[in-house]
Design a protein around this nucleic acid. Structure first.
Lengths: 220, 220, 220, 220
DNA sequence: GATGAATGAGCTTTCATTCAT
DNA sequence: GATGAATGAAAGCTCATTCAT
């Protein structure tokens, strides 16, 4: 499994295998899928936006669904990468003195990730309910891996008396719900154009409020 | 506006205006839309499941999108009913001695609502990103009304020193994120069949943990 | 099975179930398939010749292959009808004083049949090698039924000393090969236009020669 | 014409003119055409089975039809070789004392030929109805040559009182129909696997029956 | 009101063929 | 010679919508 992961990550990082047109197709497909949803997107429109003949799409991706998966799978892989690949980045390997420090790190890291993969994540979220195979992978890899990895760290903080004595899954759920609500607010803010800045949230204030909320909520 | 609301609510509660066929069409459409998504559903399949001719659908709903809206609108209306219709139900009109009591009332109320409208809510959530008109209504009515109504109550609890001194929107956001994560867990639990009960969450425990989490998190 | 047969035969005889357009589609499909072969025929051309929108074809026949089968199946059924349906016609129920009489009756009957279903039979013969399901049905029903029915009659002629003492299957094979070669000659003759009548065979002469050939060849 | 024939025959026997790839393409094309029919075969599949790039096919054969012809033509040439090329083989050049001897020789020879070229002959038979140019060549060369050559021999046997006084074409037709029905039976037998040997015909018995049938049928 | 046959635009997909490398 | 990416025309098929009955 980890081999498959690493391959996916490399294959995608090392995009030399792709022809120029193929890259354009992917880019166009991401844009169109994110904009209209998978089912409402036509391969014709994708081809046009990619500046490619429609047939070219099907030379690289056997079906439209194949195209979807080839977009969504690598991102899914990258999503769990931090959790399955040792020393992939510093989130879990750095020593954190407090749960708060960890929270801050995660928020920064996830916002960065979200920003980078916004459109693909939108597609993923939209399509998961209709593709049982994606659901399966999500549950099997992502959820399982995240819980497993977090478990170790949270146990440490629980032992040192920084966190309430709740099941790991519960702590993860409550932490995640807080973070997710903040991150969504953050990207929502970004989606507003200049003129609408008046209705924006105060990002810094909300971040601090969120962190304090979680810390207090999970205090022993 | 409130008139329109009341009409919607009545029209739907009092389903005598609908022919039997029309009701069957709605029911079938909800089932199919929830299962496959709006764009991937065919009016043909809806007609078959409803046991009517395809043409009959278009006698009642000018277009396929019309059908979607006539499904989604009443549920949206009911969703905000407690917030816009005085004495529609007891949530806000009862006097709550503590924020915790309010939380418990909301959880019960929302779970009930979600259970009753699960499929339509799924459709709504799926389709909102692709229908700007729905988004507009959502923001204008739902969000605005909910915040407005909540504002009054939260102000009271803040004044009496039960809640931290945070913006109302922030308190709503953090409260909502906690409740949503619990409610989703609750319905997820229900979707598991008997054999999978072993992987279930402990509902009661999670509910209590969630309430305590929110209360502690929002304490002054 | 015989029930299924009778249904097929009736369904086809009683073509009132078909809309006018559907009949036109069948007629056009038979023409085009016979002319170009199944794989080289386009539903587009069939639609045009039928004076129908292309979509109409697929309202009546789910796939192009479905259309093929709905053409070929009834003819296949009619082909074996004389052998499975008692008193369907007079071939086997009349008393034949000699094998020669039987031969003459068959030739007349088969030429008539061939003339009536020339195009469909061409399609059938062309497509059988590529559709194992058709092959199966052919072997199971047609061959089996024909041999069985013939067996009884041939046994009678063998017993009365009119035919050589050969296996029934062998007699059928040799008889059939002779008849087939004559019948093909006959339809080939018809396919020639007036100007080419000079290269025609002498039908009557060939028929008599064929019958004498078979009779002498199978004499005891 | 005979020069063209000889060239064809040599070119194919002496396959040194073909590159290895070209040979593989031909072999693959024969396999695929025989399996699926010409129209249903894709150059893509042929290329894959041949282990070459799709473009390579078109380097050697201008069009897909060209490929078909380059498969079918040499076999057609070989088919008439015994009839047009003096001392090509022994069938007609040996002196036959009886028509029966000739029959036996032809059967052996044709079974051998059929076995060697089974797939190509299947392709040829399948495609002839849809390619008027092939039909033309068939009639002009094959039929004409065969009849002409046979005519001489049959005239001899008629003169010596071994055969009935029928037109040469008729004798050829009746003889051919008998032989063909036997040869088809023979190859059908071969196509059955071990387990099905019980349903086989008795080859030797059928061959003798067929020969006796023809001899008796054509006796004066 | 209800039907369902018919439509035609548009969908995904296939394919023989071309051509720069 | 050989490749395989690219093409675009055409294939089979789907679908929301219309309309005569």
């Amino acid at each position: 499994m980890e081999q498959w992961m690493e391959e996916l990550l490399l294959a995608d990082g090392d995009e030399t295998k792709m022809t120029e047109k193929q890259a354009k197709i992917l880019e166009a497909a991401i844009a169109v899928f994110a904009e209209k949803g998978f089912a409402s997107s036509s391969t014709n429109e994708i081809a046009q936006r990619a500046g490619v003949a429609e047939g070219t799409i099907f030379r690289h991706y056997k079906t439209k669904k194949d195209l979807l998966l080839s977009i969504v799978a690598p991102t899914l892989a990258k999503f769990i990468a931090p959790f399955v690949l040792r020393d992939f980045n510093q989130i879990f390997d750095a020593e954190y003195n407090s749960y708060e420090e960890l929270l801050r790190a995660i928020i920064v890291n996830r916002i960065e990730f979200l920003n980078k993969h916004k459109r693909v994540l939108k597609i993923l979220v939209q399509e998961i309910p209709f593709h049982p195979d994606l659901q399966e992978q999500m549950k099997k890899f992502v959820l399982a891996k995240v819980l497993e990895r977090f478990g170790v760290i949270i146990a440490k903080f629980k032992a040192s008396g920084q966190l309430a004595d709740l099941p790991v899954a519960t702590i993860v759920r409550l932490t995640a719900s807080g973070i997710v609500s903040y991150v969504l607010l953050y990207v929502y803010n970004q989606s507003l154009d200049k003129r609408q800045k008046s209705v924006q949230w105060d990002e810094d204030g909300e971040r601090e409020a969120t962190i304090r909320f979680i810390m207090k909520g999970l205090a022993p």
